[in-house]
Computed example of a mutant assay.
Amino acid sequence: MIRAAILDVDGVLTYFRSAWQHLHRVLGTEEWASLNREAYASGLINYRDWALVDALLWMGVPRSWVEVPVTLRRGTLELLKFLRDNDVLVIAVSGGLNYTGIPIREYINYFISNELVLDNDDSLISVKVNVENKNIVNDLINRLGLDWDYVMAVGDSDMDLPMLRRARYSIAYNPVNEEVANAARIVINSDTLYPLIDLVKAILK
Rank of each mutant, 00 (worst) to 15 (best):
D119M: 07
S64N: 13
D139I: 10
N130E: 10
M59W: 14
P162N: 05
K134C: 01
A5S: 11
I2W: 01
I112A: 00
N182Q: 15
T29N: 09
N46P: 05
V187A: 07
S18W: 06
A51N: 04
A202F: 14
N138A: 14
V68D: 04
V66F: 03
P69F: 07
V61G: 01
G11P: 00
Y107L: 10
R185N: 14
N114C: 00
N174R: 00
R166K: 14
E178Y: 11
R185K: 15
T29K: 10
Y173H: 08
L13P: 00
D158E: 13
E106R: 15
V12L: 05
S123D: 12
I188D: 05
H24S: 12
L52T: 14
G155D: 00
R143F: 13
D85Y: 10
F82Y: 15
Y99L: 06
D87C: 12
M152D: 02
I108C: 02
L140I: 03
S190W: 02
E178A: 13
L7Q: 06
Y194T: 08
L161D: 02
V200F: 04
L89F: 12
L199Y: 13
A202R: 15
A183M: 00
V53M: 12
D198G: 09
G43P: 06
E115M: 09
D85F: 08
S34W: 14
I186R: 11
S170E: 00
G11R: 01
V68Y: 10
V12T: 05
L124E: 05
M59Q: 15
V117Y: 09
Y173V: 01
E78D: 15
N46I: 04
D139N: 13
V154I: 10
N109M: 06
M159H: 07
G101K: 05
A183F: 06
D147I: 08
I2M: 10
A92Y: 04
A5K: 00
D158W: 02
Y173D: 01
R74W: 12
R17Y: 11
T14C: 08
L193K: 03
D149M: 11
A5W: 01
R73Y: 08
A183W: 04
M159G: 13
A167M: 04
S126Q: 07
D158T: 09
A184R: 03
D122K: 11
L144K: 02
D147V: 05
S34K: 15
A51L: 08
E31C: 09
I45L: 09
D147C: 10
G43A: 07
D191I: 11
N177C: 01
L23R: 01
I203D: 04
P103S: 08
S157E: 06
R185Y: 11
T100H: 02
I171P: 01
L116A: 06
V129E: 02
R25L: 12
N120H: 14
P103K: 01
E115T: 11
I108Y: 04
G28S: 10
V12R: 00
G28C: 07
A19V: 07
R168C: 06
S157W: 02
L13E: 06
I136Y: 02
S64C: 13
S42N: 13
K134W: 09
I186E: 10
